[in-house]
């Protein structure tokens, strides 16, 4: 577990540099890394996207399948988000079932998508109580260079935004999938912003170096509600450090501004 030992020299370096508002990769404390989005990168998926935040590289794919609804929501389709930390992405990742980090990541991404009510699951029902569309969102981390939450959220979002839902014909208890597609019923779009706290400074879009020495991180997702008002829709603190009340509120304000910036980069036609 030597990778859990905090490199104190690096931490001091990062903190002292931040005193003058700078970071090791040349960014200011509130700069995002260069964000690149590519959509429809996997033809066999109904939706897919790769996202880069600097060198962090993530792919998300969406597959639609017919399945059973949950008993408490018989008229609604299902969305399921999973994340895999595949071993090629980091010397620290190992093969095996998702660990707590992969599960936390998937659940934080899921919460943003779910709470913003991005996917209109009421339109994914085929036969109430029996057959609905299940949207499987699978995230693969390809290169871990920090801030997996924002990159994975954005990749999942872009994969869903550009996905196509197969058309289906319902005859009695049978569902026939047609060779035609319709756009996926989508509503408000969540944008996630993560900040790392190191010493008394907040770092937007933390790099791997920064994550290694951080006290904790805070991820905040914003979405527009029905009245087009911008709202916080999900939040997660991670890591064993603490936040003061002032830092928490400051981080949320910064995240709001940065989410507006990231929102502008979405594939055309989306807000």
């Amino acid at each position: 577990m030597t990778n859990q030992i905090i490199p104190s020299v690096k931490r001091r370096q990062i903190i002292e540099l931040a005193e003058s508002g700078k970071r090791m990769d040349g960014r200011s404390l509130t700069d995002l890394r260069k964000v690149e989005i590519k959509t429809n990168v996997v033809e066999k998926a109904e939706g897919s996207a790769t996202v880069k935040f600097g060198d962090t590289y993530v792919i998300a794919g969406v597959k639609f399948e017919i399945g059973e609804p949950f008993p408490d929501t018989p008229n609604e389709g299902v969305m399921s988000v999973s994340a895999e930390f595949v071993p090629l992405a980091s010397p620290g990742f190992e093969t095996g079932p998702p660990d707590e980090n992969a599960i936390e990541l998937a659940r934080v991404v899921d919460r943003g998508l779910r709470e913003s009510k991005l996917l209109d699951t009421s339109k994914l029902c085929l036969i109430p109580g029996k057959k609905v569309w299940i949207a499987w969102v699978d995230i693969f981390i390809l290169d871990h260079c920090g801030n997996l939450i924002d990159a994975s959220s954005l990749a999942s979002l872009c994969a869903l935004l550009t996905s196509k839902l197969p058309k289906a014909e319902v005859v009695g208890d049978e569902v026939k999938i047609l060779d035609e597609y319709a756009p996926v019923p989508l509503r408000a779009v969540p944008i996630n912003i993560t900040l790392a706290k190191i010493g008394d400074k907040l770092f937007v879009d933390p790099s791997l170096d920064e994550e290694e020495v951080m006290d904790c991180r805070l991820s905040v997702a914003f979405a527009l509600d029905d009245q087009k008002q911008e709202k916080i829709c999900a939040m997660q603190k991670g890591g064993v450090g603490t936040l003061s009340f002032e830092e928490l509120l400051r981080a949320v304000e910064i995240a709001k501004v940065k989410s507006q910036e990231l929102r502008k980069l979405l594939p055309s036609g989306e807000k």
Binding site: R111, L218, D225, Q229, E230, I232, M235, Q236, K237, T242
Partner: peptide, 26 residues
């Protein structure tokens, strides 16, 4: 939170809140 230190050790949120509502929740 650590009450006598006034420091937050866990914060999570889901749902829709404005920044003002969030500050009041906190």
């Amino acid at each position: 939170m650590m009450p006598s230190k006034n420091l937050i050790t866990l914060i999570q949120m889901d749902g829709l809140l404005t920044n003002e509502e969030f500050a009041k929740s906190v």
